[in-house]
Design a protein around this nucleic acid. Structure first.
Lengths: 248, 248
DNA sequence: CGAATAGTGTCTCTCAGACAATATTGC
DNA sequence: GCAATATTGTCTGAGAGACACTATTCG
């Protein structure tokens, strides 16, 4: 069938089943967190064909009557134990290479999730393990399907998003210190930031941080107690938090 | 079937067809251009069920062996006559509300395309008309499916993308003047910009513009001939072209 | 020359980055 | 007091926005 007939296909489709090539649709979740100063992603070790023994992003098939966003949040809550209200969830994009799944034609809609540090959930059925892996340590060649590309897109989106939106706070708990927020930026961007300039910028950007009042407990090494903050109401940061320029 | 069984579904899927709810997958193209100083989108008037008489984005079903990006470019070239090499094409996202198409379950992968001003293509078969419509004049309620949301996402993405990437040049021809580029920014953002500051910023941003040498022909109103530029090699703009802040 | 458009220079204000100095804690 | 962390202040340079001014064309 020629490509230029596709409009015709559409209009005949209600009568001609061949006009609707059958697809399966899945959601895959790039769940990122910061643990011990490193940006980590949640991966599951597969125990069945295909890619048995390989690592994969959590995910699964979208049900016939299920919205895409709903499907992603369901996978998140049921497979990883992360509640939707503590995490930031956004769609990352669709991945649909015809041969990304050896079994059949599958289009995967990837979601990007930022969550505070959480205990690793226990493995679901037919999965060997569930683990947090620092993104720098992920062996892209061992990832199932095209999940290396999905992960790379998620990390790149995360790095860009920290610049102009306040989503970095989604990696922290409800209340957090400026230093904790700085550790998030340092882990995601992979660069050290000046604590003093960072403090001035974050507390000076309108709507980014709201002081809570009470101070945080003092850390193990002593030092002045830090003030606690909650996320403010701004959806966009003005001025933005700019990444240090690479000097090539 | 319970949601927590979805991993099980995946692994049984090769043997149990019920685990793969059937979907149709389409691509829809948000093709934007600037005509007469206004940001315009290409819409087709439908001549068949569903949404007969309604306006829709060009698009169609993805074939069984067809990559998503390829499908989008095919629709672009065959339905709108825009060649891939003169346009900027990027994926916008997946839209998959269970009831977005009354016929069956369809997930649409939307693509965003920026192209120079072109003659409106002639209608394809079974389409009443193909027309450029200024986005400000689009009656969202008349759009078929969820194309109002797709269009809104595309316009918002376009506005943001002009800030930090050189894609605005995709709205111009191969060679263009600074004033033409400024008209693109003004049309997409919907705000007037200072010609003098705009000139200094664009020509001063490394990798954005490359001078061609020869000047452009003088316009109808006379005036000094403008220099011609081509797009430079930068993928990202440093410093960015910032939108004027809204003062609410 | 005057109108129109292109392009440069200058000033001010904001803000990023470097880093000194001060504040508050535990030991 | 000393070490450690938090927070504020100060200086410098880049860059954004306002706008005067110069350059080049047509009629």
């Amino acid at each position: 069938m020629s490509r230029s007939d596709e409009h015709e296909q559409e209009f005949l489709a209600a009568y001609d089943p061949r006009a609707f090539p059958p697809f399966a649709v899945t959601v895959d979740v790039v769940l990122l967190t910061v643990r011990e100063g490193r940006l980590c992603v949640l991966l599951v070790e597969r125990d069945t064909h295909p890619f048995r023994g390989g690592l994969a992003l959590p995910g699964g098939f979208v049900q016939a009557d299920e919205d895409l966003d709903t499907a992603a949040v369901e996978r998140l809550e049921n497979e990883t134990g992360v509640r939707r209200d503590v995490a930031h969830v956004e769609q990352l994009g669709a991945f649909g290479d015809p041969h990304r799944d050896p079994r059949m034609r599958v289009v995967s809609v990837a979601y990007l999730v930022f969550a505070p540090d959480l205990p690793a959930p226990r493995p679901g059925s037919r999965v060997r393990s569930v683990q947090w892996v620092p993104v720098e340590d992920v062996d892209a060649a061992r990832l199932a399907f095209d999940h290396d590309a999905v992960l790379a897109a998620g990390v790149e989106r995360a790095r860009a998003k920290l610049e102009y939106s306040p989503v970095a706070t989604a990696f922290c708990g409800e209340e957090f210190t400026v230093a904790e927020l700085r550790h998030v930026y340092e882990a995601v961007w992979g660069v050290p930031l000046d604590p003093r300039n960072f403090h001035r910028k974050t507390t000076g950007t309108p709507g980014f941080l709201v002081p809570v009042g009470s101070p945080a407990p003092v850390g193990p090494g002593g030092g002045r107690p830090a003030a606690l903050y909650r996320r403010g109401s701004a959806a966009l940061l003005h001025p933005a938090m700019l990444r240090p320029q690479r000097e090539d």
